[in-house]
Design a binder for these strands. Structure first.
Lengths: 124, 124
DNA sequence: TCCTACATTGGACAAAGTCCAAGTCAATGC
DNA sequence: GCATTGACTTGGACTTTGTCCAATGTAGGA
């Protein structure tokens, strides 16, 4: 555990957000100015491997990193401003995929992204 | 309707696949050598706006374009080789999101991506 | 203390996509 | 028929996001 890794972990722990790698880097730099982008990417990759952090692909631009890895959840994204909320739908989407629709795959995971317009953007 | 746009439409119509923009461009070039990447991007963007084609973000790299826009469906992706299959789960994920979990959003759409390992990769 | 292995750094590189000025082309109006 | 107009296309420059690599730094054990 080096200073750099601690800083990355702190950035993600600090608030429950969905940051891009660049945003993580920007916040890490604020705490440890000489940290490099490569280290941030390395550390994020390790956190993902360890299962401490999830990668989410809610928009089609940058990956986002979600520290809320220990509680299963899905995401609700505003189509206009990009705001992301964690949501907990009822039901289990995995159970909704009949074996006839699995084509022999071993299905292990499901990612659900709801899209809509948030209240702020709707009134604006 | 120009020759360039027709070629892009043909590439997507021809087979039921999930191509990246670059793959669309490569196939379009085979039919019309001087077509440029910018035109392919423009045309894909227009097709998406018209609702003729869907963008899907199954992997976190390039967007893929799915011409099967008129029948709602979701995707099953192999975590190893990236193969994508269209699937039709039972149930309606939109109905599984209670209003208490909508945070005032107007939710209009949901994208479900199942992940697993395809039979080919499982035996390899 | 010295060594070794690993972490970090900065910069080059690559992939995916956007933007823009300039060129092309067809239709319209005169 | 010819010029004008406007939309479409082109190629290249540029941006963003991410990866790779050689060189450097550093922590901890022998």
């Amino acid at each position: 555990m080096t200073a750099q890794r601690r800083v990355v972990a702190e950035v993600l722990d600090g608030e429950h957000v969905h940051l891009t790698a660049d945003e993580v880097h920007a916040r890490a730099v604020a705490k440890l100015p000489e940290i490099s982008r490569a280290t941030v990417y390395n550390t994020l990759g390790e956190l993902v491997s360890l299962g401490e952090v999830l990668e989410v692909a809610t928009d089609k631009r940058a990956k986002r990193y979600d520290p809320n890895a220990h509680r299963p959840h899905h995401h609700l994204v505003c189509a206009r401003c990009g705001t992301i909320r964690d949501v907990h739908p009822t039901g289990n989407p995995l159970a909704d995929l009949p074996s006839s629709e699995r084509f022999g795959f071993t299905v292990s995971d499901v990612e659900v992204t709801y899209r809509g317009v948030c209240p702020t953007c709707a009134t604006a």
